[in-house]
Design a protein around this nucleic acid. Sequence first.
DNA 1: GTTCTTTAGGCAAACCTTTGCCTAGCCGAC
DNA 2: GTCGGCTAGGCAAAGGTTTGCCTAAAGAAC
Lengths: 334, 334
Amino acid sequence: MIAEHLGLSVAAISRVLNGAPAAKSIPKATQDRIFAAAEELNYRPNVLARGLRRGRSMIVGVLVPEVSEGYATAVLAGIEQALLQAEYFYFLISHHHRSELIERSQIMMVDRAVDGIIAIDSPLIKHPHLPMITVSCPDAHEGITNIVLNHRRAAELAIDHLVGLGHRDIAFIKGQSFSSDTEPRWQAIRHAAARAKLTVEPKLVAQLEGDQPGHEPGYFATQRLLASNSRFTALFTFNDVSAIGAVRALREAGLRVPQDVSVVGFDDVQSAAFQNPGLTTVRQPLRTMGILAAEAVVRRITAPEEHPPAKQIVVDPELVVRDSTCPPPKRTRP
Amino acid sequence: MIAEHLGLSVAAISRVLNGAPAAKSIPKATQDRIFAAAEELNYRPNVLARGLRRGRSMIVGVLVPEVSEGYATAVLAGIEQALLQAEYFYFLISHHHRSELIERSQIMMVDRAVDGIIAIDSPLIKHPHLPMITVSCPDAHEGITNIVLNHRRAAELAIDHLVGLGHRDIAFIKGQSFSSDTEPRWQAIRHAAARAKLTVEPKLVAQLEGDQPGHEPGYFATQRLLASNSRFTALFTFNDVSAIGAVRALREAGLRVPQDVSVVGFDDVQSAAFQNPGLTTVRQPLRTMGILAAEAVVRRITAPEEHPPAKQIVVDPELVVRDSTCPPPKRTRP
DNA sequence: GTTCTTTAGGCAAACCTTTGCCTAGCCGAC
DNA sequence: GTCGGCTAGGCAAAGGTTTGCCTAAAGAAC
């Protein structure tokens, strides 16, 4: 408290400016003088000193796969909104799905004195001795709250939609093995398929490969499906970004979307509506998930005892029907 | 320095651990003991205390329009890479092109004791008394280094490509008025057009409107161009994201891309290659620009006197020809 | 033997706030 | 007059590190 010496002690100033309970013994007139002086001198508390003293940095660490198009950025937008509102800042680190980076990032964040951590689609996270919220990390440890989509419902929405249109020969593209949504989603799909009395043909299942984000993995996975020479009239992909790659591969093979093959994506990222054709997709409330994560971590930081860590928070998906799905073509001999 | 009391004073420990020059008077054996103890006790310096003492937080603030698809995220990826390498962390704030947020964000960052600021596509920034680097902010103030594309060359690449294919009737979509690249780019386009002996038809110029990111603004701008009923065989858009919207609008109007109308985008975002058709575009080295920005800000922080602020750093664009451009259709009476 | 230099490391201030505990004066009650 | 309680605010420690300056001992030079 540099120049605040208009005759009073730093202690009094601090109490008044922070509205501490002890400030109630200081008369209104003095308080006003202090506020006025702070305003006039444009006093800015030093966050480092404050953080040091209070043992709280007002920063949370956010761990994402990458800051590129699609999934993580949408969640991040929600996180940013809610954190800023709570006057928290955040450190962002991308781990590119490399496990040693995930671990190192977590340590670096703790070293940087973050008050809590939010991890998006980050497997293998350890439990630090800090409030921690994960988004789509189903194998979360004890004491970590995981925000997760209702995968079962998501799978049903997509499958029931396709089956309702008359499709029976449905191909699937699973997520990369490193993505934590891959397994639960796939289980949910099998379950929904069984429920719809559909058999999942192993030859009609491909998996995204390679760790770059973009559309390529979906493009190549679809090429593999086509190469297997098994007929399918619909394709349900792991996410919108790969669906876009898939559409391209189908087109290049001379197939029309949706007349020859219907395509259903997942996520409903911003560009899904502007694809050609507009992508039918299972929407995840990504922004909301981000907001929930941020609010939860702030609660756990500010009042840990009142908010014991919930095991998980489940959010519901929604089907968005656009132009990439339609009834299957008339069955000619395959 | 909590437990380091294996008989030595905190001062000695600090000097050794930081490799301070004064440590040279401490014998190797003692130094080894200190390192070993630090390792064993898993000593983690408290960054807040260190920052307080050194007057340096090792954090830079990064101001972006938004963390959504496209431009800013690509630059951000470069920034992250270079900053982490230099052991800096960063605060991210999105200003959504709202000027009061830009100003507030800047103040908040300074209050948060950042060591420097990088601003991407953020107009109206004030000069803080901190090292500051901007990316694509042409109206930067004194003392701020701006990283900027060679717009003139970019415009020539696109225009010469289209003219080379035989196009004479070219429509343009300018950027939103709040985007700082809009004006310089437009000037460059006029210049390149004049050089190619092309007249820019006012009816063939539309502007992106609205402040949401996505594809919609480009979609609507193209609809306005179409509604003006002036014939054009090529369209040069402000960025890839709006080009995608444009393609959709053209398609809906019954026009084929590129057979009826060629489309050239700008940026070369990740999804540009996976559009349908693959987008011909002017590539900005976005990631590189991010790296340059981060390196520059770190230099300015660590050795200000050796690195007086350059006025600007210019990077060069590159034309990426894909499938959204071809020679114009045979001229029938319009 | 004296003085100078080097070696090895300690002392304490400083960075800026927050906070537990204290005091000095004043008023009212007994 | 004495005691208790309230008002208005001060003192100083604490939070963990860095750093300018100092010292004590040993060795070197004379």
